Simulated scan of single mutants.
Amino acid sequence: MKLRKAGIATVSVLALALTATACGDDKKEGGSGSEGGGKSIKIGIKFDQPGIGQKTPDGFAGFDVDVATFVAKELGYSEDQIEFVQTPSADRENALKNGDVEFIAASYSINDEREKLVDFAGPYLLAHQDLLVKADSDIAEGTDLNGKKLCSVAGSTSAQNVKKEIAPKAQLQERGTYSECLEGLAGGSIDALTTDDSILAGYAAQDQYKGKFKLAGLKLSNENYGIGVKEGNKDLKDKINKALEKMVADGAWEEAVKKNLGPAGYKNEPAPKIGVIVK
């Protein structure tokens, strides 16, 4: 009887050990996480920015999409393990804070206020704020916007920059998406749309709008695009930075820029150095 009890105890200990090991493996391999190799990963992008991040009938396309996909692969995820989540400008910080996404690549400019709320990998693109106007518009200088209707999206700093720096009397019109601003510009209810030149170039290059709009060519600010991660997640930030460095080194970065923004005649700045913010 004593031997039988000992045998049962041994089997029980072994079973517990195997269960603990299995649980440990599930924790490591399952779910969305920054370690890679998980079942899926949720990444925040824009759904309505041609050339940057856009949801199409064939899937997702744009420079940010290509960057996010490259980074995810370096973290250990295949394309079919990526779940893209729409993250409007006003929702980006909350999406990271609440854990709705693992990281965000959504024309996310690094600035002091945002760095108080989230951490940034990168930058991975240097863009400049500009204006998009109708092809026959006489708006050439920022001061011409005084009294004009200026559109941007809620949560963006672009329109506030214009009002503060060059056109304090511009009439700010906020919309939920850039597409809504563009519709207003095409219809005449908006005089100018302002955001980064990379985004504006993508809109101007769309087939239905070719020849109808023009970029004013003003470098109103420097916009350092970064990949947002939850505050304090240094491990994920470091891994993303390594992935971005690899993307530049092997030519994939330049290829992505030309494929997504080149058709609009966009002249990009050289790939920025990781951690170097151009003011």
Rank of each mutant, 00 (worst) to 15 (best):
I227E: 02
I227D: 01
A216Y: 04
K210D: 08
L220D: 04
A186W: 00
I190V: 15
T194D: 01
E223N: 14
K214A: 10
G202H: 07
E174M: 10
L244Q: 06
A192K: 05
A205E: 14
E174T: 12
T177G: 10
K210T: 12
A192L: 04
S221D: 15
A192V: 11
S198N: 12
L220H: 01
A216D: 05
G188C: 05
D191P: 08
L200P: 08
E183M: 12
T195S: 12
C181S: 10
Y203V: 05
D207T: 11
L172G: 00
A186L: 13
D196S: 13
N224E: 09
L218M: 14
E180H: 11
D238M: 03
E180I: 09
S189I: 11
S221L: 00
K210C: 02
Q173F: 10
L236I: 07
Y209A: 07
A192T: 09
G187Y: 02
K219Q: 14
L185P: 07
K230R: 15
G228S: 11
S189M: 03
G176E: 14
Y203M: 07
S189L: 00
A216H: 04
I227W: 01
G184P: 08
L220K: 00
N233R: 04
G217P: 09
D207R: 08
S221R: 01
D235K: 13
G187K: 10
E223A: 13
D197F: 00
L200Q: 05
L244H: 07
I199Q: 11
G187P: 04
L172N: 06
K242N: 12
G232M: 01
K219L: 02
Q173E: 13
A204Q: 10
A243E: 10
L215N: 06
R175L: 12
A186C: 00
I190F: 04
G211M: 02
S221Q: 02
L182Q: 13
E180D: 15
Y203W: 14
R175S: 14
A204R: 11
A216N: 08
L172R: 11
D235I: 06
N224R: 06
A186F: 00
Y209H: 12
G188D: 06
N241Q: 04
E183N: 14
L193V: 15
K214I: 08
D196V: 04
L200N: 08
G217R: 10
E174D: 02
G184S: 08
E183P: 00
K242L: 13
E183T: 15
N222P: 00
Q206E: 14
R175W: 02
L185I: 10
L200W: 09
E183L: 13
N241A: 04
L185N: 08
E183I: 14
Y225K: 07
L193E: 12
Q173R: 09
D196Q: 14
A205D: 15
G187T: 06
G188W: 06
R175C: 10
L236W: 05
N241C: 03
K239P: 05
E183V: 15
E231T: 06
N241F: 03
G184F: 08
S198I: 05
L182H: 09
K214Y: 03
Q208L: 01
E180S: 14
D238C: 00
I190H: 02
I227Y: 02
D197N: 14
